[in-house]
């Protein structure tokens, strides 16, 4: 079992709901300060976006953050170097479209992530059917690959995906790209489907916008992922202190 999974299973045992904020690497020069602030605010793990020119699964907020980050010259190497300088006591999960790793080299990417302190990776356009080369590349390093289950995933696929996922299963709350939303969508149904297939921790993401929604999602799931809601405020000029406060408001709603 990889460290990410050990850590997140242990967290669940303590009865704490996981809070996983998402940040786009390189979006501002002080982006790692936001990561640290999120941990101070009560994040259980942090998801770090690797910018890609063509983010098919992302809505306007994360698209904008990605383009800004690329304009700032962010690369896999540059963000890994910054992450390597952090000392945090929570796991870090990279979120990247497959082409970035494919181009860098799968084994080289996996090693680079591991050496920089990442514990896992989410690759939203890497279907389970195509994932073998990437999983092989991660086999000998301590990087867990997290897979998504969608509201449209039929139950036999849920079983297959749950069996491949490491660390946790990402339950997509809705049929949509990342963004902000006014309700929880299909989250309860998707979480229930995942629960029938596995005892891995199951976190809800996509559209979680308010602490109230996070609390509601955590009634069925083991944790929540909050992306666009945080990224929007950073694009609008939020300071690390603002981020800490916002993350903490989610933390309080979950506890």
């Amino acid at each position: 079992m990889k460290s990410l999974e050990r850590h997140l299973r242990a967290l669940r045992k303590t009865g704490v709901k996981a809070l996983v904020p998402y940040f786009m690497a390189g979006v501002t020069t002080d982006w790692v300060r936001h990561v640290e602030a999120a941990v101070a605010g009560g994040a259980s793990a942090v998801e770090i976006g690797v910018p890609f020119s063509d983010p098919m699964m992302d809505g306007v907020v994360i698209q904008e953050a990605g383009l800004r980050s690329l304009a700032n010259g962010t690369t896999l190497d540059s963000l890994c170097a910054e992450v390597a300088g952090l000392t945090l006591d929570v796991p870090l999960v990279a979120m990247s479209y497959y082409n970035v790793f494919h181009h860098y080299g799968l084994a080289a990417s996996a090693r680079r992530l591991a050496d920089s302190g990442f514990d896992g990776a989410i690759v939203p356009d890497l279907a389970p059917e195509e994932a073998e080369p990437w999983r092989d590349a991660c086999h000998s390093v301590d990087v867990a690959t997290v897979f998504l289950v969608a509201p449209s995933t039929p139950s036999e696929r849920v079983t297959r995906i749950a069996a491949m996922s490491e660390g946790f299963v990402y339950a997509a709350a809705r049929m949509a790209v990342t963004g902000r939303a006014s309700d929880l969508g299909a989250a309860p149904r998707v979480v229930a489907a995942v629960r029938r297939a596995t005892d891995l921790p199951t976190y809800v993401g996509i559209g979680i916008t308010t602490p109230e929604q996070a609390r509601e999602a955590a009634q069925v799931a083991d944790g929540v992922i909050v992306g666009s809601a945080l990224v929007r405020t950073i694009l609008d000029g939020a300071s690390p202190a603002d981020t800490e406060e916002l993350v903490n408001s989610f933390r309080r709603a979950l506890d």
């Binding site: 098919m56 699964m57 279907a127 059917e129 195509e130 995933t153």
Partner: peptide, 18 residues
């Protein structure tokens, strides 16, 4: 898998796989 030699395949978000 929808491959022509080493090219092709299906690299889409899970929501679109079904």
């Amino acid at each position: 898998f929808g491959r022509f030699g080493e090219f092709g395949g299906r690299f889409v978000p899970e929501a679109l796989m079904p």
